[in-house]
Design a protein around this nucleic acid. Structure first.
Lengths: 200, 200
DNA sequence: TGTACATCAGTGAACGCGCGTTCACTGATGTAC
DNA sequence: TGTACATCAGTGAACGCGCGTTCACTGATGTAC
């Protein structure tokens, strides 16, 4: 084990899997998805370039694990917000959506960069489903009947998801300036125009 | 010149600049942005790997030109739609937004992948501004006073831009299935819920 | 409690890859006189 | 109209790069008896 400060470097790392995920998150945040590299991640974790293969198979496997964790953190961030009524709750969770994206740019982008992930990873799928369900219940209520993907009943969920998603991405592109907090203020102006119409 | 069918290969291409842009668009559409390569583009255009440098400087320069053209085509696609009244017009242009994204996936993504483009290219900036202005006038009316980026008066424009943008990206991610037309049907269900509230 | 041994989790050198860009060059074009 | 020459638009070979992955290996761990 490597969990005390006096630990010396041992041949076996002890907790390399989470350490690699953490290193990958740093590399992503610093270099962006396009600049990501498995070798650099291994370097950060203080390990040889071949080591990650033992835990993740290949680069895609590692990125998939990072994305799954990102979806979990994202779901937690939504769930952590609440409000006095349905509209207030949706508004604060909408803001949480935008804030998460801006505070975790590369990870957030990775969550949607399907081409780079293992599409059939069950962990990833489950984490994504959970995040959507949290949002869907926020819009349609905790007791709304489950709905198939194209059910018209989902329209309000899709609409509100679209708006926060689109806004977050535009904000990340700097459409609202690079000034700290400007995007958040723009979101506060804009979300109330729309979200209230989506709660039934 | 190389513009008739019997033309033989000449040392000078004659219209290499547009030919390279067209080749780049094909490479992007086939391989995605991450798979884009300057060499492959040159290969498609039937030209040596060093040739593009004469017209675009480097790979970033070529991609920037492709993105600027994409913004122009995108603006044209919005402008081509109309409606009997402001709400109908906004709705049909919203659908045009979604359709353009789905029909020009890689190009649409490129338009927003700032990290890969020359941020200070005047052509690109101008084409982007024009597209936003077309949208803004659709929402706030042709005679609305111009507004600074963070002016609250822009909120309805930003809201509607966000929703079509977010929806388009989710659709591209396959959230509404890969079934041809499914995304368009979902958009038709959802857009009316929101857009009508944004016209003043 | 001790020992043999299988398994696990790493090493580090080497591979081949396609890439973007540079370079000295050359063929074609256009222009000045 | 002809000619000299500058400029433009290409060539193609070569460069160095960092990458992901493979490979034979070895050190450490855990387990059966």
């Amino acid at each position: 084990m490597n969990d005390d400060l006096n630990s010396v470097k041992t041949y076996h790392h002890g907790a390399l899997k989470p350490a690699l995920i953490a290193a990958a998150e740093k590399v992503l945040e610093e270099r962006g998805i396009d600049g990501f590299s498995l070798r650099e991640t291994a370097r950060r974790a203080g390990v040889s370039p071949a080591a990650p293969a033992h835990h993740f198979g290949d680069a895609r496997g590692l990125l998939t694990a990072v994305a799954a964790k990102a979806y979990r953190d994202f779901g937690d961030a939504l769930e952590a917000e609440d409000g006095d009524n349905a509209i207030a709750r949706l508004r604060s969770r909408g803001m949480a959506y935008v804030r998460f994206a801006l505070a975790n740019r590369a990870r957030f982008q990775l969550m949607w960069r399907k081409a780079v992930l293992n599409a059939d990873d069950p962990d990833l799928a489950e984490a994504g489903r959970r995040a959507f369900n949290i949002h869907d219940k926020t819009v349609r209520g905790a007791n709304a009947p489950p709905a198939a993907p194209l059910d018209p009943a989902l329209a309000p969920s899709i609409a509100s998801w679209s708006i926060v998603h689109g806004f977050a991405l535009l904000a990340m592109d700097g459409v609202f300036g690079t000034d700290e907090g400007a995007a958040e203020r723009a979101a506060e102006q804009m979300l109330p125009l729309v979200l209230q119409h989506l709660i039934v």
